[in-house]
Amino acid sequence: MNLPIFTIIVPCYNEEEVLEVTIDQLTAKLSELIKQNLVSEKSKVLFVDDGSKDRTWHLIYKASLNNEMVKGLKLSRNAGHQNALLAGLFSAKEASDCMVTIDADLQDDIHAINEMVKKYNEGYEVIYGVRSSRESDTFFKRFTAEGFYKLMDKLGVKLVFNHADFRLMSKRAVDELEHFAESNMFLRGIVPLIGFNSTSVCYERRERLAGETKYPLKKMLAFAFDGITSFSVTPIRFVMLIGCLSFFVSLLFGLYFLTLKLFGNTELGWTSLITSIWLIGGLQLIALGLVGEYIGKIYKETKRRPKYIVDVDLFNLPVSRKLINMEGADYEPISETRKLSENN
């Protein structure tokens, strides 16, 4: 039996406080999987530096020099969590049979990876890591997160409930994922669209080992709104419905005021007038903003700009000690353009 070549992909953004522990735990987990004959000895852990401003890349590179299991991929700038995941998947897929994505803070249970690999060996091509409960979350976070999943379901977007970006995908699934060419990649909604044989593995989410969350409330709201507008036109239809209702209500009020005029009772206050003006004005601004959001997405899609730019790729290039000063974080950048020219 040929064991699958397996890659653990870890997006990192300013994770120097937790990264050394993460590297130790993930390499230990990969060694365990190899000893249990679940994955090939050629398996790797790929850390994707998403334009970090701290020593994250230095720690990744240092680990890659000391441990052949560790590989690094450095993006030229911060491209966002979803694009960092894509960069890791697309870089690793040619040399991997299956890949799992997991955040660097290791709040997702790495022991669930064993069950994921077993499910893959059973024939599943997409295995979702699903939280069994949200008891560790605050009431606000639990309420908003579960409300988001329910709202997306009402809008017709089929997400895996309580699943984030902790998942295993086969090479074939990642190949199909690469065919999705849109700029606004909301992976939690796109991956289920692939449609291959899938299943779920439940786990308990843990506290962050160190450092601060990279998803404060502002980013969470922006992420949720981006997911909604990327997958559904229901909000625009809802605004149109409100507009129609407002039109019919205005007709009723028009008839009401006309009746008052006919009977000579026209001494009315300004409250109803001012309220209606502000109400209609607010609805118009909301409608314009929502339509503008969709137009903005269309504008971004037409530009066809790259989702990310790779600065250094240690997964597909041999490691060279000349690239980094071990006393600091200096390195000689290797862009994709330069890499191609060197190969030619």
Score class of each variant (00 low, 15 high):
V10A: 06
P11N: 05
N14K: 10
L19V: 07
L19K: 04
E20I: 06
Q25P: 01
L26T: 07
S52T: 03
D54P: 00
R55D: 03
W57S: 09
H58W: 15
I60E: 02
L65G: 09
K71S: 11
S76D: 10
N78L: 01
G80Q: 04
G88A: 05
E94N: 12
E94M: 09
M99Y: 06
Q107L: 05
D108K: 02
D108H: 01
I113E: 06
E115R: 08
M116L: 00
V126E: 12
I127K: 02
Y128F: 15
R131G: 01
S132H: 10
S133D: 15
E135A: 10
S136H: 13
D137I: 04
F139G: 00
T144E: 03
L155V: 03
L159I: 09
D165K: 05
K171D: 05
R172L: 08
A173P: 04
E176R: 14
E178P: 03
V201M: 04
R208V: 05
P216K: 04
P216R: 06
P216N: 10
L221K: 04
A224Y: 07
A224N: 13
F238W: 09
L241E: 12
C244A: 13
Y256L: 14
Y256I: 11
F257K: 10
T271N: 14
I277A: 15
Q284D: 09
Q284V: 13
A287I: 14
G289D: 11
I295K: 13
K297G: 10
E301G: 07
R304Y: 04
K307W: 10
K307T: 10
K307G: 14
V310T: 11
D311A: 04
L314S: 07
P318Q: 15
V319C: 10
N325W: 05
E332W: 08
T337F: 15
T337L: 15
L340Q: 14
E342D: 13
E342P: 00
